[in-house]
Amino acid sequence: MDPFLVLLHSVSSSLSSSELTELKFLCLGRVGKRKLERVQSGLDLFSMLLEQNDLEPGHTELLRELLASLRRHDLLRRVDDFEAGA
């Protein structure tokens, strides 16, 4: 399986429902409101961002910004580990 997708799945499974709600709010300018209403998990949101090329294995800035906004430094370390091994 693609290591970047494994990372996104790992991050998604670590998010609380309130954190997902916050991420959806933060992505309002990037993803349409109707699409965001269908998001049920972090993976749903990340999939939309992947489709729009806002997220890519070599383009993790948005993911970092979102996780920093949540103050999830543990998840930021996972992104660091991914990039160190990528």
Rank of each mutant, 00 (worst) to 15 (best):
M1T: 07
M1C: 09
D2I: 03
D2Y: 05
P3W: 04
P3F: 05
P3H: 13
P3T: 09
P3A: 11
F4A: 02
F4K: 03
F4D: 00
F4W: 08
L5S: 14
L5C: 08
L5H: 10
L5Y: 15
V6G: 09
L7A: 03
L7R: 01
L7H: 00
L7T: 03
L8F: 02
L8G: 00
L8N: 00
H9Q: 15
H9S: 15
S10L: 08
S10N: 13
S10I: 10
V11W: 01
V11P: 00
V11Q: 02
V11S: 02
V11D: 01
S12E: 03
S12Q: 02
S13Q: 07
S13N: 05
S14W: 00
S14D: 13
S14K: 11
L15H: 00
L15W: 03
L15M: 06
L15F: 04
L15Q: 02
L15Y: 00
L15A: 02
L15E: 03
S16P: 03
S16E: 05
S16V: 04
S16R: 05
S17G: 08
S17T: 12
S17L: 10
S17D: 12
S17F: 10
S17M: 10
S18D: 14
S18V: 09
E19G: 02
E19V: 00
E19C: 03
E19M: 00
E19Q: 03
E19W: 00
L20Q: 03
L20M: 06
L20K: 01
T21R: 12
T21F: 08
T21Q: 13
T21H: 13
T21K: 14
T21M: 14
E22Y: 11
E22C: 08
L23H: 00
L23C: 05
K24I: 04
K24F: 01
K24C: 08
K24Q: 05
F25M: 15
F25H: 15
F25S: 15
L26P: 00
L26D: 04
L26C: 06
L26E: 06
L26F: 07
L26G: 05
L26A: 10
C27A: 08
C27R: 02
C27K: 00
L28F: 09
L28Y: 11
L28K: 15
L28T: 14
L28E: 15
G29V: 06
G29K: 14
G29R: 09
G29I: 05
G29W: 06
R30Q: 06
R30T: 07
R30P: 03
R30L: 08
V31S: 04
V31E: 03
G32V: 08
G32L: 05
G32S: 12
K33I: 10
K33W: 11
K33P: 11
R34S: 13
R34K: 14
R34V: 13
K35Q: 14
L36N: 01
L36G: 03
L36C: 06
L36M: 11
E37R: 10
E37G: 10
E37V: 08
R38F: 07
R38L: 12
R38A: 12
V39Y: 02
V39M: 07
Q40M: 10
Q40P: 01
Q40R: 14
Q40G: 11
Q40E: 14
S41Q: 07
S41G: 05
G42I: 05
G42P: 14
G42E: 00
G42M: 06
L43E: 10
L43D: 12
L43P: 04
L43F: 15
D44W: 02
D44C: 07
D44H: 08
D44L: 03
L45W: 01
L45T: 00
L45C: 03
L45D: 03
L45G: 01
F46P: 03
F46Q: 02
F46W: 04
F46Y: 04
S47K: 15
S47G: 13
S47Y: 12
S47C: 14
M48R: 06
M48S: 06
M48W: 06
M48N: 06
L49N: 01
L49S: 02
L49R: 00
L49K: 00
L50H: 15
L50M: 13
L50G: 11
E51K: 10
E51G: 08
E51T: 08
E51I: 06
E51V: 07
Q52V: 09
Q52T: 13
Q52K: 09
Q52P: 04
N53Y: 10
N53E: 12
N53R: 13
N53G: 14
D54K: 09
D54N: 08
D54W: 09
D54C: 09
L55E: 06
E56F: 13
E56M: 12
E56P: 05
E56T: 15
E56R: 14
E56N: 15
P57N: 08
P57G: 10
P57V: 14
P57D: 11
P57S: 11
G58A: 10
G58I: 04
G58W: 06
G58H: 10
H59Q: 11
H59V: 05
H59Y: 07
H59M: 06
H59E: 09
H59R: 15
H59P: 07
H59I: 04
T60V: 11
T60N: 06
T60R: 01
E61Q: 12
E61V: 11
E61N: 11
E61H: 10
L62S: 05
L62E: 04
L62R: 05
L62Q: 05
L62W: 08
L63Y: 01
L63S: 02
R64H: 07
R64W: 04
R64K: 14
R64A: 04
E65V: 10
E65N: 12
E65D: 13
E65T: 09
E65H: 12
E65C: 10
L66E: 01
L66Q: 04
L66G: 04
L66R: 01
L67A: 02
L67M: 08
L67H: 03
L67N: 01
L67I: 06
L67Y: 02
L67R: 01
L67V: 05
A68G: 15
A68Q: 14
S69Q: 13
S69E: 11
S69H: 15
L70A: 04
L70V: 13
L70H: 03
L70K: 01
L70I: 13
R71F: 06
R71P: 11
R71T: 07
R71D: 13
R72P: 02
R72C: 01
R72Y: 01
H73Q: 12
H73P: 14
H73F: 12
H73A: 10
H73G: 11
D74P: 00
D74K: 00
D74Q: 01
L75W: 00
L75H: 00
L75R: 00
L75G: 00
L75K: 01
L75A: 00
L76Q: 05
L76M: 11
L76G: 03
R77V: 07
R77N: 07
R77G: 08
R77D: 10
R77T: 09
R77C: 08
R78T: 10
R78L: 12
R78F: 09
R78K: 09
V79M: 06
V79Y: 04
V79A: 01
V79E: 00
D80W: 05
D80H: 07
D80N: 09
D80I: 08
D80Q: 09
D81H: 07
F82G: 03
F82R: 01
F82V: 02
F82M: 04
E83S: 08
E83I: 08
E83F: 05
A84L: 10
A84Q: 14
A84E: 15
G85T: 13
G85P: 12
G85A: 12
G85V: 10
A86R: 13
A86T: 12
A86Y: 11
